[in-house]
Design a protein around this nucleic acid. Structure first.
Length: 624
RNA sequence: GGCGCUAUCGUCUAACGGUUAGGACGGAGCCCUCUCAAGGCUCAAAUACGGGUUCGAUUCCCGUUAGCGCUACCA
C-alpha cells in the first residue's frame, strides 16, 4: 500500500504533452460502454494496408469516462480476462504516457486497492499471490524496440524485438515500436518497409508507434534544458571522424578544457555571432568518481567518470545525436525497461547521465548478448548478405513460430531442457534471468545459409501444423516451383510429405511427382532393383502393369495385390516395389509407394510404367 | 592505445561450491522398414591457460590469452 503512491507521485519528469484521446466508436473487444479509448496505436503513413486493418492490439485499454467511478480494463495476455476496476482510468491517465483525457484529473492518491474486482473475473483468480501494487507495476511496464531504418530487418534486430515483445506480453506491459530515423541521409523507405514486412510475417504486434524524426522538437528542448542547467557546454572546435585515430586517441584529450571551461559570456557571444558549435555533455568528474547502474542481465555495472568522454548532445547542425534523442524519447514515453543489444552496454553510462540531467530516474536496463557469424564477426548485411535477413527465412519456407522459437534459444534458455516451444509456451517461460552473458553464433555457411537447428526446429513446427492448414501454406511454394497446384490436390499430397519436409520450399523436391507430367528424364539404371538386373526390372514392371490395370486404387488393396505379385515372382518386396517407385516417381527417394499410387491414380501410374518399360529391354519370358 | 563485457562438446545450451559435467542440433553406427522420412537404441565430442581461496572449484578471487563491444557532429 505504501509502494503505490510512490509510483504515482509524479516524481518522474513530465516532458510529454497530452495527446488527444480518441472517442471510442467500436470497441474491438466486444464489450460495450461509452467512453474513451485511452490507448491508441498510431499508424505511420504509408503503412501496409493489411496491417493497418488488423484489430488494435494494445496492451491495455481502458474504456470509460474518467469521471465515472467504474472503468473497464482489458488485459491482453491470453486468455484475455476482463477485470472490473475502479478509478483505473484516472489512475492510468495520471501515470501513463499513453494519453490524457481532458477530463482526467490528477489523482495523487489513487490506490490500486481501489482495484476491487468483482465476480466472475477476480484478481485473485488471476494472480492469487499478487498485490494490487504488483499489478499496477505490470500495467506500467513499457518496453520499446527502436530500430534505425538503414537496412533490412535482420535476425539480430528481430531477436531484440522478440525479447522485448515476450517481456511485455509475459508481464502485461506495453510494447512500443519507435523508428529511430534521425539520421536522414541513411534512412530509406525500403528499409522501413522491410522492418514492417518482417514484423508482419512474424506476426508480432506493438501497441504504440512513434517516429523519432517527428519528435525533434522534444529532443532539442531536452538538450536545451540540460544546457540551461549548466550540464552541457558549447564546443566550437571542428574535427571530423577521419581526423581521429582510434588506436591512439585518449579520452583525456577529449575533455576539451578550453571549451569546457570557457566563460559563459564568451560562449554566448560566439554563439550569437553565428559560430557553429557542438553541444557537449559536461561529464561530472569533480563531483563524483563513477557512474553505476544495475543491469538486469549483466548485474551491477560501473565506470569511472574519468573514462567517459564529453559526448555530443547536439550536432553543429542543431540535430540531436542518437544518445540525446533516444534518452529524451525514453523519458517522454516512460519506458520502464530498455532491453537492447549488448553493444549499448557501455553507452548506458552516458544514458544514465542524460537521464539524471533530465531529472528523471533512469529506467531499468537489460542488455542482450549479441548474435555473431561463424567467423566471430558481428552479423552485418554488408558482409553476410541476405542470409541474415528475416525475409530470407520467410522465403525459404520457415514458419514464423519456428523462427521465433529458434531465435529465442540464442542467448536464452528455459533451463528445463525444452527446445521446441510454441509462442504461448515462450511467453509463459520467458524471463530476463534466463538470458546468458556470452555472444551466440548463428551457424550458417555459403552453401547452407540456415542454421541446422533452425531447420530442425522448423520441421518440428511443421509437424505440429494441421494438414489442412499446412496444405494452404504450401500452395504459394508450389506455385513458386511452377506446379499447377490447387487446394484439393494439395490436400491429398500434403499428408505424404508432411513429416518429410523441413522447409516449406521442400515441396518443390518432394511433391514434384504429383504435379509434373511427364516426369523429368531419369536414368533407366535406376529402375534395376537391388540384387537384380534389367530383366528383373522389366518383369516386375510388366507384372505390375497387369496388376495395377485391375486393382482397386486404395492403400490396402494395392498393398495386398503388389505383395501377392512379389510372392508370385518369388522376389523380395523391396525388389518388387523399387522398380515401380522409380517408374512412377523417376527416382528412388519418394513418399511411400501405395499412398503415392493412390494419389496419382490408375491412369498416370500405368502411363508412367509404360514409359519405363520402353526404356528397358523387352521383358524375358520368365513364367516357366 | 584506453575502458567495458565474455569464455562448458563443432554449434545452441544445463549444472545452491560436492553430478560418471546433463540435454538438443549436427556427425557415426545399429534396429525397424517398400525407398526416404519418422521412431527406438548406442557411440564420439567440452569446463581456454596459470595461479590462488576451500576438505572439495565448471562455479568464487587474481592474472594471462582470446573474442566481442564502446571509444563519431553513426545508430
Amino acid at each position: 500500500m505504501t509502494a503505490v503512491p510512490r509510483l504515482l507521485d509524479g516524481s518522474r519528469s513530465r516532458v510529454c504533452r497530452p495527446r488527444p484521446s480518441t472517442p471510442l466508436k467500436r470497441n474491438p473487444w466486444g464489450f460495450c460502454g461509452s467512453g474513451w479509448l485511452h490507448s491508441i496505436r498510431r499508424q505511420p503513413a504509408g503503412f501496409p494496408e493489411r496491417v493497418r486493418m488488423r484489430p488494435l492490439s494494445p496492451c491495455i485499454s481502458i474504456s470509460a469516462t474518467p469521471s465515472t467511478s467504474t472503468s473497464m480494463v482489458h488485459f491482453p495476455w491470453s486468455p484475455p480476462p476482463r477485470i472490473w476496476a475502479r478509478n483505473v482510468a484516472t489512475c492510468w491517465a495520471n501515470i501513463g504516457a499513453v494519453s490524457t483525457s481532458p477530463a482526467a484529473k490528477p489523482v495523487q492518491k489513487v490506490l490500486l486497492l481501489d482495484f476491487i474486482p468483482s465476480p466472475p473475473f477476480g484478481l485473485a483468480q488471476l494472480y492469487p499471490c499478487e498485490s494490487s501494487a504488483v499489478i499496477l507495476k505490470r500495467l506500467m511496464l513499457r518496453v520499446r524496440f527502436a530500430p534505425s531504418p538503414t537496412g533490412y530487418l535482420h535476425i539480430g534486430s528481430a531477436r531484440t524485438f522478440i525479447f522485448n515483445w515476450l517481456y511485455a506480453r509475459r508481464n502485461g506491459g506495453t510494447m512500443i515500436l519507435r523508428i529511430d530515423d534521425t539520421d536522414v541521409e541513411r534512412n530509406t523507405q525500403e528499409s522501413l518497409d522491410s522492418i514492417y514486412e518482417g514484423l508482419q510475417w512474424l506476426d508480432l504486434s506493438w501497441d504504440e508507434f512513434y517516429r523519432q524524426s517527428e519528435r525533434g522538437e522534444l529532443h532539442r528542448k531536452a538538450a536545451e534544458s540540460i544546457f540551461a542547467k549548466g550540464l552541457a557546454y558549447r564546443d566550437f572546435r571542428t574535427f571530423t571522424f577521419e581526423d581521429l585515430d582510434l588506436s591512439k586517441v585518449d579520452v583525456h584529450a577529449k575533455f576539451n578544457p578550453e571549451m569546457r571551461e570557457m566563460p559563459k559570456v564568451e560562449s554566448d557571444l560566439r554563439a550569437a555571432a553565428g559560430e557553429p558549435f557542438v553541444l557537449r555533455f559536461r561529464v561530472p568528474r569533480e563531483s563524483r568518481t563513477d557512474v553505476t547502474f544495475q543491469d538486469m542481465v549483466y548485474g551491477p555495472q560501473s565506470k569511472a567518470t574519468a573514462d567517459i568522454e564529453d559526448f555530443a548532445l547536439l550536432r553543429s547542425s542543431g540535430v540531436p545525436t542518437y544518445h540525446m534523442a533516444s534518452c529524451a524519447d525514453d523519458a517522454d514515453l516512460r519506458i520502464s525497461h530498455i532491453i537492447r543489444g549488448q553493444d549499448h552496454l557501455t553507452n548506458t553510462f552516458k544514458h544514465v547521465l542524460i537521464f539524471e540531467a533530465l531529472g528523471v530516474t533512469p529506467p531499468n536496463f537489460a542488455h542482450l548478448p549479441l548474435l555473431i557469424a561463424p567467423d566471430g564477426s558481428k552479423l552485418s548485411k554488408r558482409k553476410h548478405g541476405p542470409v541474415v535477413s528475416v525475409t530470407t527465412y520467410r522465403d525459404a519456407g520457415f514458419l514464423p513460430q519456428a523462427f521465433v522459437n529458434f531465435v529465442c534459444l540464442l542467448g536464452w534458455s528455459p533451463k528445463d531442457n525444452r527446445e521446441v516451444l510454441s509462442r504461448q509456451e515462450l511467453i509463459d517461460a520467458f524471463s530476463l534471468e534466463g538470458i546468458n552473458h556470452s555472444n551466440a553464433t548463428v551457424n550458417f555457411t555459403e552453401q547452407d545459409p540456415f542454421d541446422p537447428k533452425a531447420v530442425w526446429l522448423n520441421s518440428q513446427h511443421i509437424r505440429a501444423v494441421p494438414v489442412e492448414q499446412l496444405a494452404e501454406q504450401l500452395l504459394p511454394f508450389a506455385a513458386e516451383a511452377g506446379f499447377a497446384a490447387d487446394r484439393a490436390k494439395m490436400l491429398q499430397v500434403t499428408p505424404l510429405i508432411h513429416e518429410r519436409i523441413q522447409l516449406l520450399r521442400d515441396v518443390k523436391t518432394w511433391a514434384d511427382i504429383f504435379f509434373l507430367d511427364p516426369l523429368p528424364p531419369y536414368d533407366s539404371a535406376e529402375l534395376i532393383p537391388q540384387k537384380g538386373d534389367a530383366a528383373m526390372a522389366a518383369t516386375v514392371l510388366a507384372r505390375a502393369r497387369q496388376v495395377l490395370g485391375t486393382a482397386e486404387f486404395s492403400h490396402d488393396a494395392l498393398d495386398a495385390a503388389l505383395r501377392a505379385a512379389a510372392a508370385e515372382l518369388k522376389i523380395k518386396t523391396g525388389q518388387m516395389f523399387q522398380p515401380i517407385r522409380v517408374a512412377v516417381c523417376g527416382r528412388k527417394v519418394a513418399p511411400p509407394l501405395f499412398e503415392t499410387l493412390e494419389v496419382l491414380g490408375r491412369e498416370i501410374t500405368l502411363k508412367r510404367i509404360d514409359q519405363a518399360l520402353q526404356m528397358l529391354p523387352a521383358p524375358l519370358r520368365t513364367e516357366n
